[in-house]
Every structure is written in structure tokens, then in C-alpha cells.
Design a protein around this nucleic acid. Structure first.
Lengths: 163, 163
DNA sequence: TGTGATTGTCACTTAAGATGATTATATTCG
DNA sequence: CGAATATAATCATCTTAAGTGACAATCACA
């Protein structure tokens, strides 16, 4: 690819990585939300559950900080999970102001299902690429995501939900 | 990378291409919006102007269809550009229901500036990758974006704006 | 000619996040 | 000890952006 075609592509928007990232990310999130629909949860709930499954008993504040979500928003998120019987607020063992958030049994049953839906989604998304290409893309994306000023495994990606 | 580490990564969210795409896209759009701020336009306006610069005199409907934006929303978008003196609604030569949307002189002066901002943004975004890697990433993203059921150069990417 | 479709507009609704105040509790320090 | 300050969660409110449905003007076509 010559510099000329690069430049020509650049004004086509779809020649810019930033634009493609934004568009693909948005579409991907949208489709994932649709897939998750039958489970009665949105991508943000799945992300939260995934975090909880590895970190029982965190406070809402801690969850929020880890996920890059404001604590006021976490209230609603935990509300959602609680209403669907997927999480519960227990008394925090040492801080009576805080809640310790735990997954329910039901959530532990649902999580593998949600994971397999995420797998399907991933497969569909990457279906036009062969094995090595997928690995390559993943590696490149991870390097972009690892850039400084960017805490690990933290989302504003949870925003792009919209079911 | 073994299958084991793949599987381990997958439950880490940041091991999933879909999640990374969504997160990186959202961040990228956010930062681009900030960069564009001083010009008084959002990414969606830039995208529209880019389209108009190559297609003078389209109707709002046509613009909307091309960009994947509902015509009701196009009303507001064109309003925005008009208020900032960047676009004008002229009489459509053959259809008195429709407007022919044109860029103003001022917009033609602004566009190169906006493009250079987009270039800077692109450079920052990809700064951790070397030349060949950037080309590789771009190629992979374009292949994903070219998947069927996906009209070319069309955005829901314009959604991810939020300045 | 008249019937149905299309263009742009507007008013209304919905969804989601941001903000600020409030209550209960914890921590710090004089 | 006790007062001042900070923190956890909640709630009410605001803003923003998109989706919906209704409408007038105009077009297309039978």
C-alpha cells in the first residue's frame, strides 16, 4: 500500500483506525447486548458478574473503581442484579456503611451460559479471520489497550451497551 | 500462546476482542471529541462534513441513509452545522420537499483543520505500534468492518461521541 | 385527478450517565 | 474523649442523545 492510497483512504473515514475501532466497537457491543437479551442482562451486567465471580464481597465502591464506573451508577447496577436474583448485598464484615456484594447461586448457574454466549459472539465477530489473524488482532488490540493512562481491565466499554 | 492461556484470558474480558473493540472504540471516540472541541464540532459533525465535502447537494434523507442516521436525527445535525455557519440548506433543484445541503466557505476552511486533528488523533492512538503493525491492524479492522450485513462507511460509530 | 408514498419538522418519550444533597458510619487528631 | 472530617451508599434531579409517532407539503403514479 503506497502513501497515496493511505492518504486517499484517510479521508474516507473507514481508512482511519480510530473510526473503525469506534464503529466496530459500537456494533459489537450492540450485537452482544442482543445475544445477552434472553438472559435478561446487558453487557454491563455480565462484566460486573464476571468481576464478582473472581472477587466476592467487594464493596460497591471497589467494584465501581475497578470497572471505571461511578459509585452512584453502581447503585443501579447492583439493583438490577439484585432484582434478577443474581447478586445480593450482605453486611460488610468490618464496615457497617458498606455492602459486601456477592453473587447468588443462580448467578453461578447463569455465568457459564453467559460466557458461552460471549464465546459465540466472539466467534461471529472474528469469523472472517483465520486463526493466526485472530491472534494477531487480539495481540494488537491488547497493546493499544495497555497504553499508559489506562488502568487495566477497566471500562468505559460498558457504556456501549444499548440493547 | 497456548489454548490454556487463551481460555484464561477470555474470562478476563480484556482477553476478548469484542470487549477490547468496544472499550478502545469508546475511548478513542471520546478523545477525538475532546480534540475536536475547540472547533466547536463533535465527531458526528466531522463525519457529516467529510461526507458533504465529497457529495454536495444531497438531501437530508440521502445523507442520513448513507451515514446510517435516522432522518429525524439528521434534522438536528444539519441544524447544528447551520448554526455554526458550516452548512446551508438550499432549495433542491428538482424536489421542493427536500433541501440540498451544501458546505459553506467557512466549512471548507475548517475541514483541513479538522482532518489534521483527526490525523493527530490517529497518531496518538497508534503510537505504541510500529509502521507495519499499524498497517496490519488497519487491514484486519477493515476486514472485520467489511463483513456482510454491514453497509460500507456507515456509522453507528457516530454515536460514540460524548465530548 | 386522487391515492398513497416521501421529505422534513416537531413534540413526546425513553434510556443512561452525571451531579449534588443526604444519612449513616468511620477515621483522625487535638 | 469528642469534634471535625472523610467515606459508603442512596436518592432526586438534570442533561444528553436517540427512538417514535404525528403532521404538512409535495411528489409519483395509476
Amino acid at each position: 500500500m503506497t502513501k497515496d492510497t493511505d492518504a486517499a483512504n484517510a479521508t474516507t473515514l473507514s481508512g482511519r483506525a480510530g473510526f473503525l475501532l469506534s464503529e466496530l466497537g459500537s456494533r459489537s457491543a450492540g450485537r452482544f447486548a442482543v445475544r445477552l437479551g434472553p438472559l435478561g442482562i446487558a453487557p454491563k451486567h455480565y462484566g460486573l458478574m464476571e468481576l464478582l465471580s473472581r472477587n466476592e464481597g467487594l464493596t460497591q465502591q471497589q467494584l465501581g473503581t475497578t470497572l471505571g464506573i461511578h459509585r452512584n451508577v453502581m447503585v443501579g447496577l447492583v439493583d438490577d442484579l439484585e432484582k434478577r436474583g443474581l447478586a445480593e448485598r450482605r453486611r460488610h464484615p468490618t464496615d457497617r456503611r458498606a455492602h459486601a456484594i456477592h453473587l447468588t447461586e443462580s448467578a453461578r448457574g447463569l455465568l457459564p451460559l453467559a460466557r458461552s454466549i460471549a464465546d459465540e459472539h466472539e466467534t461471529e465477530l472474528l469469523s472472517v479471520l483465520d486463526g493466526p489473524e485472530r491472534a494477531q488482532l487480539l495481540a494488537l488490540l491488547q497493546r493499544l489497550a495497555a497504553q499508559p493512562g489506562r488502568p487495566a481491565d477497566v471500562h468505559p466499554g460498558l457504556r456501549g451497551s444499548r440493547p
